[in-house]
Design a protein around this nucleic acid. Structure first.
Lengths: 169, 169
DNA sequence: CATGATGCTTACGTTTACGTCAATTTCTTC
DNA sequence: GAAGAAATTGACGTAAACGTAAGCATCATG
């Protein structure tokens, strides 16, 4: 409504913080330690401004931090590997890389991915196991509940099987 | 071999630490903040000594901490609820609790379990999604690898389909 | 029973991941 | 263009989760 050019201006750090559910300080900190690119575009007065891609990156960082439970330092090297892979992809498309080197790069990428997959996979398995155990416990509790209800009904309606819930006032 | 009575003495804090992969300090700390029962049996000279059950409890604590990624404080309340459930179970078996109260207790337990299940379930779903994404990336890389191999073979053996790997010196 | 390893408590130190405050600057809006 | 909201850098503060060191007691072993 107030944009003659039509494009909404890129959000600033406070807006982004609200978008992804964190605080400006955290975002600055992530930039400080190199988890986020060192200098998001700083138009005019030096206020940070974020593209959609950068917001996405931040979301991904927070997601991985939460899901993998790694330190920010570990996460950094982990993301650095991804970054490197992205660069390699671009390079493979643009330049004419000899096939031997090509295979090397692809295999390297595969190695990284497999290590991550293994990490994630192990966690999934462990969590699934935990889920199963909780499910079992739940079943037992519900069984006891049903037994209790059965007893209830047996005492209140001693000779009436399958009451079928005809509860009218 | 050196046990005339046959029974191995219960392990001390250092042994337990090695068993579960942590340090004595951490175990003492967990006891200090109430994550572990305040006073594991202290025979004679005041050295902590741990039963198999206590070692298991410690393992469970560490497992949950890692898998759920919660603070020790949260974990404490979480385990307190489990503890409470255990007490309730015992009580339900021993004493004669009126059916109405029985239902209350069972429902309460069910509530706790369901909250935990929801937590675990969400994590499993998110991690599974992440795993899927990684799998996709992996597929793409492998496809590019195969394409590369196909090209290799096409140039080195232009008119020979299915070489079948007859590599002899 | 001497002695080296291990444990105990107390207390202070450290790392990670931010929170908070201050002084200054920039944006926005009336 | 005045003023309040939001951002910047810099610095110090802090909660969580232990690490580490000191001084002393206990345990195991030749």
């Amino acid at each position: 409504m107030s944009e003659p050019g039509g494009r909404a201006p890129n959000p600033r750090i406070g807006d982004v913080a609200k978008l992804v559910g964190t605080t400006p300080r955290t975002i600055r900190y992530y930039e400080e330690i190199g988890l986020l690119p060192p200098a998001p575009a700083r138009p005019a007065g030096g206020h940070r401004t974020y593209s959609e891609a950068e917001v996405e990156r931040l979301r991904e960082v927070m997601r991985l931090k939460d899901l993998l439970g790694v330190t920010l330092e570990e996460l950094k090297t982990l993301l650095a590997a991804e970054e490197a892979r992205a660069l390699v992809r671009a390079k493979l498309r643009r330049e004419d890389v000899p096939p031997a080197r090509r295979r090397e790069l692809l295999n390297e990428a595969l190695g990284h991915i497999d290590r991550q997959l293994e990490l994630v996979d192990r966690r999934v398995r462990e969590l699934t196991k935990l889920k199963g155990e909780l499910g079992e416990t739940r079943k037992r509790v519900r069984r006891r509940t049903r037994e209790l209800e059965a007893q209830d009904q047996a005492t209140s309606l001693p000779n009436d099987p399958l009451p079928k819930d005809l509860s009218n006032a």
